[in-house]
Simulated scan of single mutants.
Amino acid sequence: MKLRDIAHSRTGDKGDISNISVIAFDEADYPLIEAHVTADRVKDLFHEVVHGEVARYEIPSIGALNFVMRQALGGGVTRSLALDAHGKCLASALLDLEMPDIARPIQAA
Rank of each mutant, 00 (worst) to 15 (best):
H36K: 12
V54K: 09
I106Q: 12
I102N: 01
V22Y: 03
Q71K: 14
M1I: 09
D40V: 02
A39M: 10
A24C: 12
E98T: 07
Y30M: 03
I106G: 04
S61Y: 04
L83I: 10
D101S: 11
I17F: 02
A39F: 05
R10N: 03
T11D: 13
A91M: 08
E27P: 10
D5V: 00
R4P: 04
H47I: 15
A72N: 06
G76T: 00
D96V: 08
A39K: 09
D96F: 11
T38H: 06
F25W: 10
D96H: 13
V54S: 09
A93M: 08
H86L: 10
A24K: 06
I6L: 11
V22I: 14
D44E: 15
I106W: 03
L32C: 11
A91R: 10
R56L: 03
S18I: 12
D5M: 02
R10V: 01
A24R: 00
A103E: 04
A93E: 01
V22W: 04
G12H: 05
L45F: 11
S80P: 00
D5N: 13
R70C: 11
A7H: 06
G76Y: 01
H47T: 15
Q107W: 06
I59S: 06
A35N: 14
A64S: 15
A108N: 15
V54G: 09
L94K: 01
A64N: 12
L73Y: 09
D16N: 15
E98N: 02
G75F: 04
K88R: 11
L65M: 05
L32E: 13
L45I: 08
S9T: 15
I59Y: 14
V37Q: 01
S80L: 01
E27Y: 14
I59V: 15
S18M: 13
N19R: 02
Y30L: 01
H36W: 06
A91I: 12
Y57D: 09
P105Q: 09
K88Q: 02
F46R: 01
G12M: 09
T38E: 05
R10E: 06
H8F: 15
A55E: 12
T11M: 14
S21H: 00
G15Q: 02
Y57M: 13
G63L: 11
V68I: 15
D5A: 08
E58N: 14
D26Q: 03
S80I: 02
H8C: 14
S92F: 12
L45A: 10
E98K: 06
Y30I: 05
A7L: 03
I17M: 10
L32M: 14
A24M: 05
A103R: 01
Q71E: 14
M1D: 10
I59W: 13
D13S: 07
S18T: 04
S21P: 03
D44W: 05
T11Y: 14
G63H: 09
K2L: 15
S9I: 11
A72D: 03
H51Q: 08
F25M: 01
Q107P: 10
P60S: 11
V22A: 07
A28K: 13
S9E: 11
L95G: 09
L97A: 12
V37R: 08
M1A: 13
T11N: 13
S9N: 13
K88I: 10
I33Y: 11
V42A: 12
F25L: 04
D29N: 11
A108G: 14
V50T: 00
H51E: 03
I106H: 05
L81I: 09
D44C: 07
V42T: 06
V49Q: 00
A109G: 13
L73F: 07
F46K: 01
G76F: 02
Q71M: 01
R79W: 06
